[in-house]
Nucleic acid binder design. Structure first.
Lengths: 136, 136, 136, 136
DNA sequence: GTGGTCTAGACCACT
DNA sequence: GTGGTCTAGACCACC
């Protein structure tokens, strides 16, 4: 399965958010294309060893945001209308997590160069490979 | 003394975290210097229209991280000696917000180089001159 | 599972600190092992006849120090990977209780050798034959 | 004056406790002998740049414990009846700070050998000469 | 006046 | 059910 979703149970990020994020990333990386059908709620829940409610919640959030489309009786599909942001809009949308990162880094005493290095290292480990978080 | 702390009530970020973050930013920006006294728990609580407990928690968290020092009966002060972690521990402590940033950036369609540029720009705006020299 | 936590109400040590300390001791003594689930906040609060907030604070402090891990909706668990400080930071973090011990020992008339012996004896009683650190 | 009291303002130990502790240590080290007169509350307060109330509190606590004796109109003197503890009693009296030290050390990840080394180092930096007049 | 602790009770998000 | 947050109000120790 090309979704390659990994759940990090130890962290503080809600599981439904992790699923939603990684679906979006699969979409952005091209592993999931417009119109593709996603695994059923129950199938994905079983694969991830997670409560079906949690998967349903993730799908519902994405449908609400227009990322996915639900066709009752058929399944859930990647939406055909993908949002495209201007550069300014992209920057605005990452402003909050960016601030959070910088703040936390300053608290633990990191210098700017070290923060940039940490980001580079993190991006290097991305690839089309599995989703970011370590597994437990 | 104006720390210019603003609370975003609607957001999902806890109030005590918002306070702590903005104290750190004031420290990093030089608006708050080592040894400076912070507003009292009660005063800041009244100014922000927030429960004193919430401010106390923000302060307590920063004291635990070595950013502030509390002298009961006197007040709370910006610490001189910042806590020192090993590099591995520093990385561990920013892993979560770093992942959050990368996730969000990928979702909105940013490429690695653009993410790094956004971070650099953010850091440049933060740094008042790297060593105590402000105002150029 | 019995953590055998006992609260000394009359003393000057805060309750949340007593709880945190005894969780650490259970961890060091092997009564609590990595990955084990701890009693829920509400359950432990009821058992100790203490406000849930107080237990929550003890748990939260240990989570911040990397001793425990909290999974909202699931429970609190003993962490696998302990926080790592530099040696200097470790010394800084025990400086205060170390001074308190030496002060008290000198007050009651103990000589250095006797203090060291008391510590050795205390450590021996703590570590039941685990002739070293535990590794994963 | 041979009391050589030093106040650490940054720590969490109350100032009156610091004063009382160091009077006891001066007594244990022989720098202060039975029957000696102590500096007046106001004199010591001025010397330490501390509120007189704080010094008075320290003296009062020591009088209550029988370490000092107050002679109204004359001053405060080191008590002639110094308590002598059996070894078991000494151990009992340091049990609490000893536990606090061990707990904190375990939290920050120190191994037994490292804790003992830290104590030795701390003791080495002490005033030598219990019962003598040796000054540093 | 200051910070620190504890209680009580409420609400939220997650599973 | 779980943990997390916030409010309200009280009490304490310290300076």
């Amino acid at each position: 399965m090309s979704l390659r979703i990994a759940i990090a149970a130890g962290g503080s990020v809600p599981i439904h958010r992790q699923i939603a994020d990684q679906v979006c990333r699969a979409l952005a990386a091209g592993r999931l294309r417009e119109g593709d059908q996603l695994p059923s709620v129950r199938a994905l829940a079983e694969e991830l060893v997670v409560n079906p409610n949690t998967v349903a919640r993730a799908y519902a959030d994405l449908v609400r945001d227009g990322v996915l489309e639900a066709q009752p009786g058929k399944g859930v599909f990647a939406s055909r209308r993908r949002a495209v942001y201007t550069k300014a809009e992209r920057l605005r949308r990452i402003a909050e997590p960016l601030d959070a990162l910088v703040n936390q880094a300053l608290i633990v005493g990191m210098r700017p160069a070290e923060i940039e290095e940490a980001l580079s290292e993190r991006l290097r480990r991305l690839d089309p490979g599995a989703g970011g978080h370590r597994e437990r």
